[in-house]
C-alpha cells in the first residue's frame, strides 16, 4: 500500500512553539517511524488518524485522500478506516474484553452485540490468545493481554492501515522480542499495512521495510530496507543506515 504524507503543524507546548513538517512516502507494508521523543512522530500518527488536524498539507493512504488542505478534504476519524493502537492501549475501562473488541461492530448508541458480532469477537479472542477472558475488565489483564486486546479491537474494524504508537516501549527485553514476532505474525495474517513508532533502533532493524527517521519535527532521512536487502547490492544505503542509527544511538 502506498502512503504519502506531507503535512505542516504548529504546536505550542509549555510556551515553546514547535513546527512539525512531516513529509515522506512509503510503498511497503511495514513502515517504521523512528526518532527521539519529542521529534513529532506521535503527532504525525494522530494526524493520519484524524485525531489532530494539520495546518496544511496532504495525507493519502492507498488511493484514498484522507486530508488535503488545498482541496478542503478532511475526513473525520470514523470515515478514515485507520486503526490506532495507543502506547498505553486506551482500552475502555468500563467495558469487558468482549465489548472492547466488539466496539467497532456495534453501530447503535447502546444495546448488545448481535449473534454475528459475538461470533466474530469470539474468533478474534482465539486469534489473540484471549480465550476465557471475554468477560474480564481491562484492569484485570496483564500488560501483554491488554496490548493484544487493543490490537484485536483495532483490527476487527478491518482498517486500511494500522498505526501503532510505541507498541514496544513499555516492554522488558524478552517480551519485546516476543511482541515483535507477534506484530510480524499479525501482519502476515491480516495483510494490513502498519506504521509503527519506535525510538529503539533494534525495533527499526527488526521490523522496518520502510524506515522514516524523524528529528526535530522534520523527516531527516528515509530508507527502503526491503528492496535494499533483497537486491543485496545497495551497500551505500546500508552504510548510510548504519551511520544514521549509530548517530541516533549516541544522541538517544
Amino acid at each position: 500500500m502506498k502512503i504519502r504524507i506531507d503535512i505542516h503543524k504548529r504546536l505550542r507546548s509549555e510556551g515553546r512553539e514547535f513546527h512539525l513538517h512531516a513529509a515522506f512516502d512509503a510503498e511497503h507494508d511495514r513502515v517504521v517511524v523512528f526518532g527521539p521523543s519529542g521529534s513529532g512522530k506521535s503527532v504525525t500518527l494522530q494526524c493520519i488518524a484524524g485525531l489532530i488536524a494539520p495546518d496544511a498539507g496532504r495525507i493519502q493512504v492507498g488511493e484514498r485522500v484522507l486530508f488535503d488542505s488545498t482541496a478542503k478534504v478532511n475526513l473525520p476519524p470514523r470515515a478514515r478506516k485507520v486503526g490506532f493502537v495507543y502506547q498505553d492501549y486506551a482500552l475502555f475501562p468500563h467495558l469487558t474484553v468482549e465489548h472492547n473488541i466488539g466496539f467497532a461492530l456495534l453501530r447503535s448508541l447502546h444495546g448488545r452485540l448481535d449473534a454475528a458480532a459475538r461470533e466474530r469477537v469470539r474468533l478474534f479472542l482465539g486469534l489473540f490468545e484471549l480465550d476465557g477472558l471475554a468477560r474480564n475488565l481491562p484492569h484485570e489483564l496483564s500488560g501483554g493481554q491488554r496490548q493484544r486486546v487493543a490490537l484485536a479491537r483495532a483490527l476487527i474494524a478491518q482498517p486500511d492501515v494500522l498505526l501503532l504508537d510505541e507498541p514496544l516501549a513499555a516492554l522488558d527485553p524478552i517480551l519485546r522480542e516476543r511482541v515483535r514476532r507477534e506484530l510480524l505474525g499479525v501482519q502476515s495474517r491480516f495483510k494490513v499495512p502498519m506504521i509503527i513508532i519506535t525510538h529503539d533502533p533494534a525495533d527499526a532493524e527488526a521490523l522496518a521495510e520502510n524506515l522514516v527517521v524523524f528529528d526535530h519535527g522534520r523527516v531527516a532521512q528515509t530508507f527502503n530496507l526491503k528492496d535494499g536487502s533483497s537486491a543485496g547490492a545497495d551497500s551505500s544505503q546500508r552504510e548510510r543506515l548504519g551511520r544514521a542509527l549509530a548517530e541516533l544511538y549516541v544522541a538517544g
Partner: peptide
C-alpha cells in the same frame, strides 16, 4: 485518548 480511540473505531 479513550474518546480518540472510539472515533478511530468508527463511532460518531
Amino acid at each position: 485518548q479513550l474518546e480518540g480511540a472510539a472515533r478511530t473505531l468508527g463511532a460518531s
